[in-house]
Nucleic acid binder design. Structure first.
Lengths: 187, 187
DNA sequence: TTTATTTTGTACCTATCGGTACAATGCGCG
DNA sequence: CGCGCATTGTACCGATAGGTACAAAATAAA
């Protein structure tokens, strides 16, 4: 049996702290208490400190979406891939009970620190969805517009769901967004 | 001539700092340098410190929207009021170059501190827009859904615009959202 | 002009921030 | 076992966090 605390095991814990408090609101002490690891271990795995931790977390989130959402959208049959996307989104964001770390980082000064990863996440998502829609028979322009519309709708729903503590808002929004992607809708 | 630094004069300056760095990322020293006021003056106007400053800023934002958006939506002729809303939104958020403080505060731990003000802002906006749509002939259900859809779309557009640094995204989205509110669209 | 009040600058407080140093462990392996 | 490396806890660092104390200055009221 390997050591219990490998770098990959810690990343999700750290991610949850960043998600809850934002980049600036996340202190090293909060991370140690949440992960159960002392500074020694933390800096052993992440020599770059807080910034490297956040980077690792963003990379992890990006990899998860790449595997479960973006890649399927690009290579699987479009309608199956889109259905899969909705499932992934709903479970990942816990029906609106969990926010999007990337979106949250985008809104304050944190954005500048991780600009590439943050913009890459959204650009890839939109491009992949657009691709699936085109393969489904949509015109390129309408596909691009709708892909943007959907990704942005998800982010907006996460903001409002958390702002108003409305349990049903996210699910309601997903239903509405889904209906805008019905095959044959665009052109 | 009264003193130059009245409380109301300082609030917009402080607001810009919070907008840029988020609640946790905003330090007193950053506020003093941005406003040109020392801690003495700052704590004279805001005895409650940082938290009171943020509260005042949120109140100020809420009042602006109440006056320029919510109230007109409730009392003016609906189509004129909605047109006015789009103008206000576009100029307030500087075509996506400026984020929504309330939305940003909603995403991290800051939310809990100002929960009422944050949820109130969005709930009032949605209710006011819904009201205008109903007076425009929409069915209550469709009006509620579309009002939510539009407010959430604006927030999503702000997130994505800042995340991707796409200059045109916000304007593009506004056009799309506008078209969903065309009279006679709902029922 | 004298008085009372509002407004400011400066110095200072403790707590915590992110980060470092390093010695003491644990553990895999020959 | 005993060697070597990965892992960890502890103590510590300077800087800055938010906040307070209070006397000097500006202003308004008399």
């Amino acid at each position: 049996m390997r050591t219990l605390n490998q770098r990959p095991d810690v990343i999700p814990l750290v991610a949850e702290v960043f998600r809850e408090f934002g980049y600036e609101g996340t202190s090293l002490s909060r991370i140690t208490e949440r992960t159960g690891m002392g500074k020694g271990s933390l800096y052993h795995f992440f020599p770059g400190g807080k910034e490297e931790m956040a980077n690792a977390v963003l990379e992890d989130v990006g990899a998860w979406f790449e595997r479960h959402v973006f890649e399927p959208l690009r290579s699987e049959p479009p309608s199956a891939a889109i259905a899969r996307m909705w499932d992934a989104v709903d479970s990942y964001f816990r029906s609106g009970g969990r926010i999007c770390l990337v979106g949250a980082f985008a809104l304050d000064g944190t954005r500048d620190r991780f600009a590439d990863r943050i913009s890459g996440y959204f650009i890839q998502w939109i491009a992949a969805l657009r691709d699936a829609l085109i393969r489904q028979g949509w015109g390129p322009a309408a596909a691009g517009e709708s892909a943007e519309d959907v990704v942005l709708g998800i982010q907006g729903a996460l903001v409002l769901a958390r702002a108003t503590a409305d349990e049903g808002l996210f699910a309601r929004t997903i239903v509405r967004l889904k209906s805008r992607l019905r095959p044959g809708e665009g052109r």
